Amino acid sequence: MKASSLFILLFIIHFNVSGQFVVTDSIKVSNIDKVSVDRQGAIYLGDDSGNVDKYNTQLELTDRFSPVQKGKIGILEAWNPLRVFVFYQQLQQYAFLDRFLVTANRYDIKEISSYVGLATVSLDNNLWLIDLAKFGLIKYNINYAQIEIERPFDLILNPNNYEITHIREYQNLLFISDKKSGILIFDNLGNYLRTIKTVGISYFNFLGDKIYFKIDNRLIIKGLYDDSQSELKLEPEVDQVVIFKNSAFFLTKKWLKKANLSDY
């Protein structure tokens, strides 16, 4: 997204802090607790049994993945639509799905660590892992089946008071949210850089050079490389938000709603 388009979008959001967003489309959902968007704007929803549904920008169901072995999804990362990543925390397994959600290459993660809290795909198609057994960060090379990076959390997180909720690599930086302290930022070698200090973050995502996340009934949008910040007031029932270009998708326990931000 061009800088000018991003500025206009953020101005629109900021201008309507006190107003209602205008819903243009919606679908009914059930037991959905994971949402992701790919680089083409398709929306992916994961339910508590491990199923993944793919919707186009008009919220029409196009593809569905239903695993043989059911399990709760810890991370659903669909930015690369040719290689959708799913981490099943309870099963300690991860899978890569093709663009039609038909072929699923599933792998056991127990050989890497005795317990992985969260995992995500790296920008070089390897894995970042939250190793809770050793309380640290691991980067794992899939092709060579070996650990490339190990970083302890001891000096960053309180081992007696933390709740890691999400992880994603973006623009050569690694972001990890901890409900107790905020969003921890690392470089692509796993070196700790800084923390966005905000408690209560369950999920975050990115829009150009911005990071956004939900706190209470507000969507906070912060600059990654400056001090800019905007807010959007949310309805109380909204659990998660995903933004793609000029569209915002609001996930509640019963609905996925789409609002066209350019119509505000």
Rank of each mutant, 00 (worst) to 15 (best):
M1L: 13
L184G: 00
T57D: 05
L6Y: 02
K179G: 09
Y203R: 14
D108G: 00
V84Q: 10
P67T: 05
T198Y: 07
V29Y: 03
P67H: 07
L234W: 00
V52L: 10
L261K: 06
G136M: 01
S122P: 02
S181K: 12
E163F: 13
L118R: 12
I138L: 12
R99S: 13
K28V: 14
Y225W: 11
E111T: 06
S122F: 02
L132Y: 07
L132W: 06
S26G: 00
V102H: 05
N51H: 14
L207A: 03
Y140M: 02
F7E: 15
V241S: 05
K245S: 10
F186A: 11
D227S: 14
F175L: 04
L251D: 08
K180T: 10
A78W: 13
A119L: 04
K70Y: 10
V242E: 13
L207I: 13
D227M: 11
S26H: 08
N80Q: 00
K257Q: 15
D38W: 08
E150M: 13
D98K: 07
I75L: 06
N105R: 08
R99Q: 12
Q146T: 14
V35F: 01
G74M: 01
L10I: 11
T24L: 02
D209T: 07
G136S: 02
D48L: 13
T252G: 05
S66T: 13
S36T: 05
F244I: 04
I221H: 04
G74R: 08
I73Q: 01
I149A: 08
N16D: 12
T198W: 11
L76T: 04
V17L: 13
G200H: 09
E77G: 00
L6P: 02
V241Y: 09
V52F: 12
L207V: 03
E111V: 01
L232Y: 12
T62A: 04
S49C: 07
Y162I: 01
E237C: 06
R64Y: 08
P236F: 06
Y44C: 06
S181N: 11
L82C: 02
S49K: 15
N260T: 13
K254H: 09
N158A: 04
I8A: 11
R194F: 08
S177I: 07
I211E: 05
N51W: 04
D209L: 07
K210F: 15
K110S: 14
I149T: 14
L45C: 06
Q89T: 11
F206C: 08
Q240W: 03
R99N: 10
Q93N: 10
L91W: 11
S113F: 03
E111D: 15
Q171I: 10
L59R: 01
I12Y: 09
L184A: 08
Y55A: 03
T198I: 14
N126G: 04
G19R: 07
K253S: 10
D227C: 02
D98R: 04
S262F: 12
L132S: 14
R106I: 09
V102I: 11
R83F: 06
M1H: 15
Y88W: 01
I215V: 12
G50Y: 03
V29I: 14
L118V: 05
K179A: 11
L224N: 09
Q40Y: 11
I176M: 08
Q229W: 06
V116A: 15
A259M: 01
S181R: 14
K258S: 04
K2T: 08
V37N: 09
L137T: 02
L155A: 12
